[in-house]
Design a protein around this nucleic acid. Structure first.
Lengths: 341, 341
DNA sequence: CTGTTAGCGCCTTCAT
DNA sequence: ATGAAGGCGCTAACAG
């Protein structure tokens, strides 16, 4: 049942180049023959062989998505949005889950180059040196690149991020408006530009309110439930704040759990604000006040940018900065005017 | 810098067919030339062009994964495991997220056929008629197929499932052992074989304990937080049980939330047991007692099965049934001997 | 506007 | 054990 361009040509009574031309919308063809070829293709349920055309240097309609961990709800939702948006435009996604291991990153690079992926979207850190040199190869090959949730000027590429500074600022403002003065931040490992910006935004809001963020209340940790719990536990035992700003929803859950196991009530004794607004935020108890990232839109936008470039519709790289938004649920509450009262 | 088989042949002083032979481990080659060719390939960092070899009917090293929704933690973790396991064996995954829309299913089928995916893993219902006919085409093409989390005899294919009967049985047993008598089940839309088996297992345990499962306490709903909450709410308002068995972790969260908003305490007033043991189970408050599916192992096993078949190492289809396991956390507790005491 | 033809990189008989 | 040559399905000059 495998139709080739020859079958179509024969049945349409034209040559294969004519068929090829209508497929690719190239060269001049009389409207009449175009329509008839189109009809024949339809009738025969013909679909061009991707590998044959890739072999001659054409597109493969495949985009690689490099992500640290699709089982993490944030990246899961992002991947889904990217897959959806790409699908509409006729592209398909190869997932590459690095599990935070830089070696895997470089492995994926070379495999994507080999398979002639039309473009690559990065959602990982790209920290390791090997990754960077491997990246160079890809850049030289001219493959369009895009980066999401992060803005590292490693190579010219499209970027879609949120205004992390604003996110940090908004979170702080919310807590401050509730009367909190002693606020801790549970941050990640500090490797992304986003994290640093969030801290800066947070500090700005504090300063504007005439406060300062105590360095000892900035707690670095890994982005996992376990390490988050541990970090929060240590903090609470050492120096209990009245509010915590956790840098993602998982860490917020961690903070809430650590609090609960110590008899600290959320939000009565401790307010917790998260980041991302993934499905987790609705699942926790109490439901999480959090800074929402427009995940679906972010996915849609990277894909648009990248595919525009793949199709040669645009050349200049662009950066899109989306706004985060405060979503108030029930994990934050006014600070008590006096402790323990 | 694109190396071809010709470059290798020239540098090695042999013909391309010799090189081809060592690449594919085919035909007879002197050990000496094999080693030298291998060395040259290494030196030149040569990697065969997948498209060219696909064009001649060889493998593409790509596997399609058809899943309803990777942003759902269960499928996210499954996808990750599948991607990992496949990666180790040199295969890559194209994700196809159907969003529970059968039309998308058939679209993906045809695209995977076109791209000559070496195999396909289904994690979706395959309910729609169109999907089934489209499936036929794929079966005829001889593409190895595998199905996970479900056992529908639509076509000969490998299957990896858990013992859902046992899962339902275990859940019931746990609740019964805690003294619960009035137990409700929040099930899905009933389309999968797994669901039906769980109910059967549940009923078996009830019967063994001399009880029966009241039909009116089997609540069908969609697998989403929203509809779960609504279903639970209606149930609670109508006829409050002392325990609920929800068919996945999301529905458990829904039940817990519906309970809380009514002042029903979990687990004091109401025990809730879930299914899947996704990351959600640890995130909720209280942490969820749930029936654990060995997600990672399931992923690994389908991949092994499918790839074995792709590589012609096995022909007969096999079915692997893994055991679910009870994970006790804090959402279940002994039934009160008397209501309201 | 349309047809002819030479590759793209690799696999696979068929000879040697 | 190795080489030569045709073909996989399609694109892109190059001729009409």
């Amino acid at each position: 049942m495998k139709m080739t361009i020859y079958d179509v040509a024969e049945k349409a009574g034209v040559s294969i180049s004519t068929v090829s031309r209508v497929i690719n919308n190239t060269g001049r063809i009389s409207d009449k023959t175009r329509r008839m070829v189109l009809r024949v293709m339809e009738e025969m349920d013909y679909h061009p062989n991707v590998h044959a055309s890739a072999l001659t240097g054409k597109k493969t309609n495949m985009i690689g998505l490099i992500t640290p961990d699709i089982s993490n709800p944030f990246f899961g939702e992002l991947a889904k949005s990217i897959e959806d948006s790409a699908g509409v435009l006729g592209f398909h996604i190869i997932i590459c889950s690095t599990d935070y291991q830089p070696e895997k990153e470089t492995k994926y690079f070379s495999m994507l180059r080999q398979k002639q992926a039309d473009g690559i979207i990065f959602a990982t850190g790209l920290d390791h040196d090997d990754s960077v040199t491997a990246l160079d190869d890809i850049v030289k090959s001219g493959t369009p690149l895009a980066m999401i949730t992060q803005d590292k000027p490693l190579a010219p590429m499209d970027v879609v991020i949120i205004d992390d500074f604003l996110g940090g600022y908004t979170a702080a403002q919310h807590l401050i408006s509730l009367g909190h003065k002693k606020i801790a931040c549970i941050v990640g490992n500090g490797s992304t530009t986003g994290e640093r910006d969030r801290i800066k935004g947070f500090q700005k809001a504090m300063r504007q309110a005439g406060m300062t963020l105590d360095e000892s209340l900035i707690i670095p940790t890994e982005y996992s439930l376990e390490s988050g719990k541990q970090a929060a536990a240590e903090l609470f035992d050492r120096d209990l704040p009245t509010a915590v700003f956790a840098f993602n929803d998982v860490l917020s859950c961690a903070a809430i759990q650590a609090a609960r196991s110590r008899g600290i009530r959320v939000p009565e004794d401790l307010s917790v604000i998260g980041f991302d607004n993934t499905i987790l935020a609705e699942m926790t108890a109490p439901p999480l006040t959090t800074i929402s990232q427009p995940i679906r839109e972010m996915g849609r936008r990277v894909v648009e940018l990248l595919i525009d470039e793949i199709q040669g519709k645009k050349k200049a790289k662009s950066k899109i900065v989306l706004s985060p938004e405060l979503v108030i649920r029930q994990s934050t509450a006014p600070a008590k005017t006096r402790p323990q009262q």
